[in-house]
Design a protein around this nucleic acid. Sequence first.
DNA 1: TTTAATCATCGTATATAGACGATAAACAAT
DNA 2: ATTGTTTATCGTCTATATACGATGATTAAA
Lengths: 110, 110
Amino acid sequence: MAKSQADRFPEEHQRLADLAKALSHPARIAILEVLASRNVCVCGEVVAELPLSQATVSQHLKVLVEAGLIVGEIEGPKSCYCVNWSRLDEVRTMFSTWFGHTERLKIDCC
Amino acid sequence: MAKSQADRFPEEHQRLADLAKALSHPARIAILEVLASRNVCVCGEVVAELPLSQATVSQHLKVLVEAGLIVGEIEGPKSCYCVNWSRLDEVRTMFSTWFGHTERLKIDCC
DNA sequence: TTTAATCATCGTATATAGACGATAAACAAT
DNA sequence: ATTGTTTATCGTCTATATACGATGATTAAA
């Protein structure tokens, strides 16, 4: 966002928008699915699954970590990521709640 | 997205990411709520509700229209927008389905 | 027909986002 | 110790996103 007028908006709206932004790239959707489908925390495997360079994937992973959607830890020369399930569920609830709230505002339109 | 590598990803992921992007700014979250809370389709009223210039609000409205989340029509010198409820519900379902699908992939992690 | 009001769009400026090659840091394995 | 592997980060380039003033188009109202 340019000039970052973000603080002019309610905390609630900002948080929802930030989460949406974390999900606003197909690579990050794909990464979440890849991590979700492994019983072992994958690392460089993610790169192999995506049509992007290692550096770019690493950036996307960082975005997801900062949004709290995944967790990463270093294991030797490798890095291991996994889905933060409790957080993911929290986010699911936040979206669901917002849609419900917004639809309840409906009265009559057009 | 830079260079537009979008077509390297599944249609499904792309569509979800695009919707998330439409919701990735607090102003657009706010606009949806404002429109949802009026029984008459508001126009310039939206501008009055937001801490942004008329030009900027108009841009955000355009993004929401392009995402199909709202509908706009010109009425005299004014423009009238309203929430596309069926589409909003469709989007709600898409997110809900994705979260459900992703959580079902869970096996055991970390 | 002027006048005022409303709003989309243009032009422009700045900030982010996205992509990747190159590199450095951290280890494992030799 | 040296080598190879893995991955985060840096630097850089390009594309989008965000923001706003100014303008033009449209129309209601005077």
